[in-house]
């Protein structure tokens, strides 16, 4: 069976762990619980007539206290770049992380999840900016770990790129 390592990348508190929990276990907790180390989860996703076993590396969010070791990305087939739509600075961080990842492990398939679409009213990132990302050729999903919207889509879209 196909095994694919996928890393969750993004600033802290953008909802990486929540997205994984929603995708793998269909659960969501309103409470913010920061990830300090690395959590690894597995989930099978069917792509056409094959099952892809996704090994999800949920990395802690990068901030001034913790920097993400690029060695965690070794062997990764792709990654999810998670942005919190309500915090503009997480987009900047994502841009930096994407660049660093590309420098460390080369070009890999990835998708962008603009998380917290359930709070769209208080988004700080406008559609125009998202359009810019799409124009760069990035695959952008609006998602919400809370409602589950777009979560499955984002992961399976990435899985499809990996097969």
């Amino acid at each position: 069976m196909l095994q694919k390592k996928i890393c969750m990348l993004g600033s802290f508190a953008v909802g990486k762990t929540s997205l994984v929990a929603r995708f793998v276990r269909s659960i969501y907790s309103e409470k913010y619980h920061t990830t300090v180390g690395v959590k690894i989860d597995k989930k099978q996703v069917p792509v056409e007539d094959k099952l892809v076993n996704l090994i999800l590396w949920d990395l802690y969010g990068e901030d001034e206290f913790q920097k993400v070791h690029m060695s965690y990305l070794r062997g990764a087939s792709g990654y999810l770049l998670v942005i919190d739509g309500t915090r503009r600075e997480t987009l900047d961080k994502a841009l930096v992380l994407q660049q660093r990842t590309e420098e460390a492990v080369g070009k890999l398939p990835f998708v962008v999840v603009m998380n917290k679409v359930d709070l769209k009213d208080s988004w700080e990132i406008d559609d125009r900016t998202i359009e810019e990302l799409v124009n760069k050729g990035w695959q952008v999903f609006h998602g919400s770990a809370k409602t589950g919207l777009g979560v499955e889509d984002a992961f399976t879209a990435l899985a499809r790129q990996l097969v």
């Binding site: 996703v45 069917p46 792509v47 056409e48 007539d49 499955e152 889509d153 399976t156």
Partner: peptide, 12 residues
């Protein structure tokens, strides 16, 4: 079933 973008995911 939840209709997600991936049709394969719904054959389950």
């Amino acid at each position: 079933q939840p209709l997600v973008g991936n049709q394969e995911s719904n054959r389950r």
